[in-house]
Write a protein that binds this DNA or RNA. Sequence first.
DNA 1: TCTGGGGTCCTAGGACCC
DNA 2: TCTGGGGTCCTAGGACCC
Length: 432
Amino acid sequence: MPKADIPNKTKKTSMYALIDGNNFYASCERVFNPALRDKPVVVLSNNDGIIVARSNEAKALGIKMGTPAFEIKKLLQQQKVFAFSSNYALYGDMSQRMMQIFTEFTPDIEIYSIDEAFLDFSDFKNIDLRQTGLDIRRRVYKYIGIPVSVGLAPTKTLAKIANRIAKKMMKNGVALIDTPEKIEKALQLTPVEEVWGIGRQHTRFLHRHQVKTAFDFTRLPDAFIRKKMSVTGLRTKKELLGTSCIPMEYEPQPRKAVRTARTFAQTTTDFEYVAEAVATFASACGEKLRRQNSVANLLTVFVRTNKFAQNKTYYANSFTVQLSATNSSIDLIKAAHKALHIIFKEGYEYKKAGVLVSGLRPDKHRQLTLFERQNYVKHKQIMQVIDRLNAQHGYKLLKIAAEGQSRAWRLRQEYRSKRYTTRWDELIEIRV
DNA sequence: TCTGGGGTCCTAGGACCC
DNA sequence: TCTGGGGTCCTAGGACCC
């Protein structure tokens, strides 16, 4: 019998929860610093560049996501806003603890990002879902100190919407959408640009067609959506109408590409400087590849000058070289330097550079030619030694010479809090 | 002075093959 | 002179996500 003929009644009704930490990074900072309670808090991106997280108090001051920090420096001082550099060691660790608590409610969990997870409650009959949401919330707050919001609905896209409603309109932080009537009400309450999968470009287009809410969007004909927004747009419509099209992904999929890139704290015209940075990025890509047991077939290097600088010609370029399926930092650095030589032009003030490796395959499927074998084995052994020593004795104890010593282009992090949960020497201190 | 970083998926079009 | 038709693979560019 063809699949399409399977009778409908065997289809189970789905129910997903989307849980995420409110203002996650800002909340993490608060856990270890009670003085921040009820105060405006913002967290800055790498290089202290832009705002990436705000507490509710900071939002109330009109501070927007993505604003360059220098633009609102005055406001931050005047309003006594507490600003922090990103502290990913802390946020990553807090994230793991939070996810651990989620798994106590169901093993069917998909970790979607550092601060959010989908939980599949489809198979749960006769449980009070709203109460479960409240329990999750209470337990996370008790053990981790992070406030979370819980949205429950029959599809992932609707769970996202429920989560937004929980955050914006529900005092208890939980919203359950479980009937056609509630679905329609929720769609009418949701501006179309807030729908998961509808971004800036499509929003502009939809607004031109008088589509303002998620509800309006679901009234558009399938063919129109298919033509203008491809199959992904159509999938979004179905999800909004309650048909689940986006399945859970329980196992993290191996990456298909890996990238390391940085904006320099200062611009540079010096080839050696950029070469050193690019070598370090290539090496970092190698580490990421080895961690997931992949090898890469392609390596791209890109550089660019400051795209915001007036009165200066903007230059951006990239070059891709073929690799012979490797994850050796030595190979990657060589390839990266080869590519950099091709795109580096004297006289420009470079502001950013990066390395992307793609065409990833599992390491074990690697085909070796007779001549490659010797190098391959040798490199593999060297990399294993480097990775092991760095893991045991501290990061970057060992590195390839091309990565350089100066590191002058490294990150600026003027306001980083302590790594309370991952460093013995940075444990929280309590005075009695 | 100062504007992040790291991913995914889809489509169209070209190269190439039989 | 007329210049097939179908398939696969790859890549660049665009859109989206957190």
